[in-house]
Design a protein around this nucleic acid. Structure first.
Lengths: 125, 125
DNA sequence: TCTCTGATTCGACGGGCGTCGAGACAGGCG
DNA sequence: CGCCTGTCTCGACGCCCGTCGAATCAGAGA
């Protein structure tokens, strides 16, 4: 579903198939790191981590911004800015319906990040 | 480096038992987010992500700094700074043996981060 | 002890990030 | 149409972060 076939394969985080083996299994190459790091970076802020969780755990799979904002002691523009960051990191999707904007999580990329951090139960010992 | 026998229990990422359910299962509370976000933040830099991978995937479970540094076009102090960041995030441990310093991964925290990002295979659709 | 090598700390520089208020945009409703 | 509510964009501010070179620390060895 991606526009593969082109030269720069890079890493497609939106794809549903795993892009990379666990970080502890094989050295993450520089290009892969360059693609994955921004996703972790986006989760590297407490507010965004909570936002991500609120969105991902929402019933019906989506949340209105108007439900998100009042949960924080932050201005509307600031929440909007964080949501944009999550959006640009590919972690969430936004859709406007009437006056309200709804956000939903992108499970594929979350799964890939989880896979990357996976460690075998018996490392070697 | 583990000084401060602080009182606040907060969340212990070094513990072997899971501290928190998947982010998509239940809303991550603010205190938990405050503890977990720094770990993601530490992984949010391409160089640190590669370092983490090199350390975690190392044979024997540890790597000498002298093996890490030449893999990057960065000065020694810069690599040392990134390693310190990973250390302070609780992602790795350092041990000096003679002239050299060896780093090893802390699997427990990696597992907890992976668990946090875990999404069920059938969200809802 | 003196010296050499490996690693960290220190101080500085430039750019990026989180936050805000003010303003712009979108859409529903009188 | 005009207004109101919800959301985003735009500048601006201060702080943090990634990078460097120079200096410092830790051990090994002569």
């Amino acid at each position: 579903m991606s526009k593969q076939g082109v030269s720069p394969p890079a890493v497609d985080l939106t794809a549903d198939e795993p892009c990379c083996p666990p970080l502890a299994q094989r050295r993450v190459p520089a290009e892969t790191a360059a693609v994955l790091a921004p996703a972790f970076k986006a989760l590297g802020d407490p507010v965004r981590l909570q936002l991500m969780s609120m969105i991902a755990s929402a019933e019906g799979g989506e949340v209105c911004v108007c439900e998100l904002t009042p949960s924080f002691d932050l201005s509307g523009p600031t929440i909007s800015h964080h949501l944009k960051t999550l959006r640009e990191a590919g972690l969430v999707d936004a859709e406007r319906r009437g006056t309200w904007v709804y956000y939903r999580a992108r499970p594929a990329i979350l799964r890939q990040l989880a896979l990357l951090l996976t460690v075998e139960l018996t490392p070697v010992a």
